[in-house]
Amino acid sequence: MPQNAVRTDSPARGTAHPTWWRAPLVATLAGLPFLVLEFHWFRSQDGLGSLGGIFYWSSGLLALAWVLPRRRSLRTPRMLISGAGLGCVMLPVLFALALGMAMSSG
């Protein structure tokens, strides 16, 4: 075999995850409109306030789901991080809905 020949059976090729992008894409597409809504909602109230940490955590978790290495062994952590990011995005919205329902039922 010549020295400059390219090997197609390299171990790195077998460990690449071909659909690594699905979990971050689903979480981002579902959470991004709510993330923008929350940002405008928080900014209209003179800053992020007490829920600002949730905004930063959700943004950070969604970004981390995209930048994880594309190995098959990181499929589960990528899904968990995407789900946690989506959960953090939805937390203020669900809290506001629950608070509105509690106030209207009294």
Rank of each mutant, 00 (worst) to 15 (best):
M1D: 10
M1H: 12
M1W: 07
P2N: 04
Q3H: 08
V6R: 11
V6N: 09
R7Q: 09
D9L: 05
S10G: 15
S10W: 06
A12Y: 01
A12F: 00
H17N: 05
W20G: 05
W20D: 15
W21Q: 12
W21P: 03
A23K: 02
P24E: 13
L25F: 10
A30L: 13
A30F: 04
G31P: 05
L32V: 11
P33I: 15
P33M: 02
H40P: 07
W41S: 15
R43I: 01
R43A: 07
S44Y: 10
Q45L: 08
Q45E: 11
L48E: 09
L48P: 10
G49M: 04
S50T: 14
G52F: 00
S58W: 00
S59D: 15
G60I: 00
L61A: 10
A65H: 14
L68S: 11
R71G: 01
L74M: 08
R75Q: 13
M79E: 12
I81L: 04
S82Y: 01
S82K: 01
G83Q: 13
G83E: 13
G85N: 14
G87D: 13
V89A: 05
M90A: 12
M90Q: 03
V93L: 15
V93N: 11
F95Y: 13
F95E: 11
L97T: 12
A98F: 04
L99T: 15
G106D: 06
G106N: 08
G106K: 15
